[in-house]
């Protein structure tokens, strides 16, 4: 078994696939990295084998200082937070952090943003797929978070899904309390036309999700975490252009193959692939990266 991440027994190009070198040249930035989610830094370091093997240039972790059950990380020991901050500072050339916020606790969320973004290594905020109080990102009480994020030039990522279910049965009817749909992102983005948002997972049901956010030029679409559907990226590019797609890997729970394949399935130019795999995200993150002196 190959022991080096750069060692391949067969040539991917012989199978109509990009080689590792091709992937590296695409400068892939992964906005949806869960490598720290279970197992912290050791689990992440173990996963780096696959990160390197698949040519991923930068990981943006969405689980810094919080978890779905405890978005603000109130139960995380201070020592663990300190280690994470140090790790992010030391590895700023390859790993970036987004901190979960809790729309049910906007003021505490803002305090966390001061601590981790204004006075820490992180570069953005993430809304999980639900929160303890069941408050949606589109709730007006949450606007204070967005205003502060805009001031900080932070990247804003919002998990969205349209889980079919409920009574009557409909897309979004089975969402968890506080789990946003793309419509919630659209409502929020309409109130903040000068702020950019990333609509995570394309709503799960991308045929619907893309259409909810299509008219909002300040909404970018990330499309990881769902099954790979042939035609998904073609459809999304046709609706909103390649300039509004952002790639996520969703590892280690999803396979990089699953997420890369969505893009390689689509009929795109090389420049469009460059934009989707990293160019668009670099454009979104540029202000805060420059402010912090991080490598673009």
């Amino acid at each position: 078994m190959p022991s080096s991440p750069r060692e391949f027994v067969l040539n991917p190009a012989a199978y109509g696939l990009p080689t590792r070198d091709d992937l590296v040249k695409l400068r892939i930035w992964d906005i949806h990295y869960h490598g720290f989610f279970k197992g912290g830094i050791p689990a992440h370091e173990e996963n780096l084998f696959y990160v390197e093997r698949m040519g991923i240039e930068r990981m943006l972790s969405l689980d810094i200082g919080g978890s779905p059950e405890d978005p603000l990380g109130t139960t995380i020991p201070a020592e663990q937070n300190r280690e994470m901050r140090e790790y992010l500072e030391q590895h700023a050339d390859s790993v970036s952090g987004l901190i979960p916020v809790d729309p049910g606790r906007p003021l505490e969320s803002c305090r966390k943003m001061e601590e981790w973004i204004a006075n820490g290594p992180c570069i953005g905020i993430k809304y999980y797929g639900g929160n303890p109080k069941g408050v949606l990102c589109s709730h007006p009480d949450n606007d204070v978070i967005i205003r502060l994020a805009a001031q900080m030039k932070a990247v804003i990522y919002i998990h969205t899904w349209l889980q079919v279910g409920g009574e009557p049965r409909r897309p979004g009817g089975k969402n968890a309390p506080g789990e946003a749909t793309p419509l919630d992102v659209a409502k929020l983005a309409a109130r903040f036309p000068d702020v950019n948002f990333i609509c995570g997972h394309s709503g799960g049901d991308w045929e619907l999700g893309v259409r909810y956010v299509r008219p909002l030029e300040n909404v970018y679409i990330e499309f990881s975490g769902s099954d790979p559907h042939s035609g998904q990226v073609d459809f999304t590019v046709a609706e909103v252009s390649a300039a509004r797609l952002v790639w996520g890997g969703h590892g280690p729970s999803r396979s990089y193959s699953t997420e890369l394949a969505k893009v390689f399935d689509a009929d795109l130019t090389h420049d469009q692939r460059l934009a989707i795999f990293g160019g668009n995200l670099r454009r979104l993150a540029e202000p805060i990266f420059r402010k912090k002196g991080y490598k673009l």
Partner: peptide, 16 residues
């Protein structure tokens, strides 16, 4: 699914 998804899994894992 795009066939690339399963195909790339052959390379993502370090199989001999």
């Amino acid at each position: 699914f795009p066939c690339e998804s399963a195909l790339m899994k052959l390379f993502e894992s370090p199989l001999d």
